[in-house]
Amino acid sequence: MIENVQNISVESLLRYVHDMLFNGYRFITATSVDNGDGTVDVLYHFDKDLEMKHLRITVNKQEEIPSISGIYFGAVLVENEMKELFGLNIKNIVIDYGGHMLLSDDELEAPMARQITIINKDKGGVPQ
């Protein structure tokens, strides 16, 4: 359904993003989607004169992702958000909140990712 999606590898991400900057694209945002099988899709959306272009990388949860905030400063907030809510391992964000932009210390780790919660009915249905 989405047009102009390009599937790329994690290693080539920075190169492609540099190309986008060079070609005068505006960074809209990034989206992460948990596929449910331990991998996460990360889509980077770009726009030029209202034409959209998307880059898609598929990573394992622990895999390192380079930050694009050095190229597009506008990616700072969204990369911090993905890091916190999906537990992605994004390296070298320009302003790195270290997982405390939205969440406090005593909250679940990566609350947006698919998690298996075991509910023990003997203990009154309290999630473990």
């Binding site: 809209i28 945002t29 989206t31 989607v33 889509l43 959306h45």
Partner: peptide, 29 residues
């Protein structure tokens, strides 16, 4: 501009709904 990304899987619930709101884009500037 607001951007919505949706992924559905053929059931009644969605897999993912992502909302990028305008202020989110304006804060870095």
């Amino acid at each position: 501009e607001a951007l919505y990304y949706m992924r559905a899987n053929g059931s009644k619930t969605l897999d993912r709904l992502r909302v990028r709101t305008p202020t989110f884009a304006n804060i870095p500037a």
